Simulated scan of single mutants.
Amino acid sequence: MDLDLTTTNQALRNRGAKLTLYVVPGRGTIGVRGTWTDAAGVRKQRKAGLGCPATPGGLIEAEQIATAMHQAISEGIDPTTVVLRAKHQPGQAIPEKPVTVAEAIATFEKDYWQTRKRLPNTELTWQRYQMILNRLPANGVLSLGLLQQILLETTEPDSRTRQMTCMQFERLLKKSGVEGSEQLRMLRGNYKPQERELPTDEQLVQLIDVIRPTKWGWCLAAMATFGCRPGEVPSLQLHRDGTAECLSIKEKLRLPTPRTCFAYPKEWIDRWTLHEVEIPTGPLEEARWIKPNQFDSADSERWVAAWRGARQAQIYKETIAEVFGDDYRFDIYDMRHRWAVRSIEANVNQSLCAQSMGHSLQMHEQRYQRWMTATDLRAAMAKLTM
């Protein structure tokens, strides 16, 4: 039995269980020793008889009980309840061998790629998931208690990191069939992102007037004027009435759908000669998708990445610093958000604006509620003071 016990105890440690099986002297049965907290809340080193015979078959049964005890300890439960259940229910199956963290992550990853294509954006998302999941001990037994412990030790309350970690741990439990995701959800906290600092229209005009003659100038001006997403810019087809057609690429893993958007203000079309379409190819042979079947999300991701990289050009750095100051973190998505706020401040019909931007009115109101409320209050105050 000595060799078998050594092998079994090593297997328990590989699963994160700090318990040791041994043969009870003079009884011919197997016991377990370790440190745990009993029902009275006292934590100390203890021993417990498992009642399993000191035979190869009994050792297998004892290993299963010890593994279930480890899971109970991880969840803050007195593990002797597992021993009592095993002793008083002969013939019933011992709880299944718990899943290790490594096994659970492997299952999670397999499920993730079964429902997604390998694209730059999905690869990046999985890398973010991995950064969170790598905080867990690979050889540990997956349990609610373990995830709660890691969550509380590695994240701050009400932080985005806490929220994102909690969400991934919940998914890991669900995919592995382990209970506890609802209890984890309660630990997400009340994280709220900081309000985005947006440029004024005066600053945008000053910036784009300088940038317009450069490689990515048309794209920046078009996005500021029509409020579309960066990856939708190559699909813009302008009309003379101030509207344009573009492909709405909001839905991932689906072909984009055509939508109509409008320029606001319309005079920016002539100011920056937007009818003269100038879309740089960047890393692609052709960066222009007009029909849904011409769109490729991987190409779009690379193209947008090249556009964002253009901010490192000297003319960008100098102009941004001059217009916004050295500390301002400019992003091309500011063009889209500023379009929405501009339309709100001008009391343009927000249902039409939501359609133009390619999302629902509900999402539009949620995202830009702060500016809508401020505009409504100013309008009400103007009436009161008339």
Results as ranks from 00 to 15, higher is better:
residue 241 D to I: 00
residue 311 R to Y: 11
residue 243 T to F: 00
residue 260 T to N: 04
residue 222 A to K: 08
residue 209 D to Q: 03
residue 300 S to N: 13
residue 206 Q to V: 06
residue 242 G to L: 03
residue 234 P to A: 08
residue 233 V to S: 05
residue 236 L to K: 11
residue 312 Q to R: 13
residue 277 V to F: 01
residue 231 G to D: 10
residue 311 R to L: 11
residue 283 P to Q: 08
residue 237 Q to N: 10
residue 220 L to H: 09
residue 202 E to W: 10
residue 268 W to S: 10
residue 212 R to F: 12
residue 299 D to R: 13
residue 278 E to T: 11
residue 268 W to I: 02
residue 253 L to T: 15
residue 327 D to L: 02
residue 260 T to R: 06
residue 289 W to H: 03
residue 319 T to E: 03
residue 328 Y to P: 06
residue 264 Y to M: 00
residue 279 I to C: 02
residue 331 D to L: 11
residue 265 P to L: 03
residue 340 A to T: 06
residue 221 A to D: 07
residue 202 E to V: 12
residue 292 P to F: 02
residue 209 D to T: 14
residue 217 G to P: 00
residue 268 W to P: 01
residue 276 E to V: 13
residue 239 H to G: 11
residue 300 S to A: 13
residue 275 H to M: 11
residue 288 R to F: 04
residue 255 L to W: 11
residue 200 T to A: 05
residue 211 I to M: 13
residue 261 C to N: 07
residue 284 L to M: 02
residue 330 F to D: 02
residue 326 D to E: 15
residue 293 N to F: 12
residue 321 A to I: 04
residue 267 E to F: 08
residue 308 R to E: 14
residue 337 H to Q: 04
residue 330 F to L: 10
residue 310 A to H: 14
residue 326 D to Y: 09
residue 337 H to A: 01
residue 296 D to S: 10
residue 273 T to W: 09
residue 221 A to Q: 08
residue 332 I to G: 09
residue 205 V to L: 01
residue 283 P to D: 03
residue 226 F to T: 09
residue 262 F to C: 02
residue 278 E to A: 12
residue 317 K to T: 12
residue 209 D to V: 01
residue 301 E to I: 03
residue 250 K to D: 06
residue 266 K to R: 07
residue 241 D to K: 01
residue 232 E to G: 06
residue 270 D to H: 15
residue 279 I to V: 15
residue 280 P to F: 01
residue 229 R to H: 02
residue 311 R to E: 14
residue 214 T to E: 13
residue 225 T to R: 00
residue 234 P to M: 10
residue 312 Q to K: 15
residue 209 D to Y: 02
residue 272 W to A: 05
residue 267 E to A: 09
residue 316 Y to W: 15
residue 258 P to D: 01
residue 294 Q to N: 08
residue 283 P to G: 00
residue 251 E to A: 13
residue 210 V to G: 00
residue 312 Q to M: 10
residue 276 E to H: 15
residue 302 R to A: 00
residue 273 T to E: 14
residue 281 T to S: 15
residue 236 L to A: 13
residue 303 W to H: 06
residue 302 R to P: 04
residue 335 M to F: 12
residue 219 C to N: 12
residue 229 R to T: 06
residue 335 M to V: 05
residue 234 P to H: 13
residue 335 M to E: 03
residue 339 W to M: 01
residue 308 R to A: 09
residue 316 Y to S: 12
residue 276 E to N: 15
residue 209 D to I: 04
residue 262 F to L: 00
residue 243 T to D: 02
residue 203 Q to D: 11
residue 334 D to Y: 05
residue 245 E to T: 12
residue 300 S to T: 08
residue 318 E to Q: 14
residue 222 A to Q: 10
residue 249 I to E: 07
residue 278 E to Q: 13
residue 242 G to N: 07
residue 304 V to L: 04
residue 249 I to S: 14
residue 319 T to K: 06
residue 308 R to W: 13
residue 228 C to R: 07
residue 239 H to F: 10
residue 235 S to Y: 05
residue 207 L to K: 02
residue 245 E to P: 05
residue 323 V to N: 06
